[in-house]
Design a protein around this nucleic acid. Structure first.
Length: 112
DNA sequence: GCCTTGACGTTAG
DNA sequence: ACTAACGCCAAGG
């Protein structure tokens, strides 16, 4: 059973699916949790792939931001959807497109 | 096969 | 706080 790229994508989706409402995590934390510390970029790639394809389960991909809290993936959602969804979960922002990581960061390493 | 392009992160300045 | 240079590695041209 050799690990291929699609396995990695699936594992990313599994982690994202467990991010609690009102919390966010970042690309690097997910990669690290999956044992691929240098794979932060690939996590982003996986999420991008998620939005382009058709998937049976809805997962909160809007809850993944970069390590500084910036909504680097906002351009891949319609309009301002990413920020709107986060605000609906009472997530606080320190800047227009930056969430308050100090308050809302959820680390897969410590919770899974 | 080579080159460029990224939802990234770390380090140095 | 901000910028630039790398390292990373899958995908697409």
């Amino acid at each position: 059973m050799k690990a291929n790229t699609s396995d990695f994508y699936e594992r990313v989706y599994e982690v994202v699916a467990q991010i609690p409402t009102g919390k966010v995590t970042n690309y690097g934390a997910i990669a690290k949790h999956l044992g691929v510390e240098s794979g932060a970029r690939m996590v982003g790639y996986a999420l991008n792939n998620y939005l382009s394809g058709k998937h049976p389960h809805e997962i909160p991909v809007h809850r993944v931001v970069n390590r500084l809290g910036y909504l680097t993936g906002r351009a891949y959602f319609d309009g301002d959807t990413m920020r709107e969804r986060l605000q609906q979960e009472d997530i606080k922002f320190t800047e227009e497109f930056r969430v308050d990581m100090k308050t809302h960061f959820w680390d897969p390493m410590e919770n899974l």
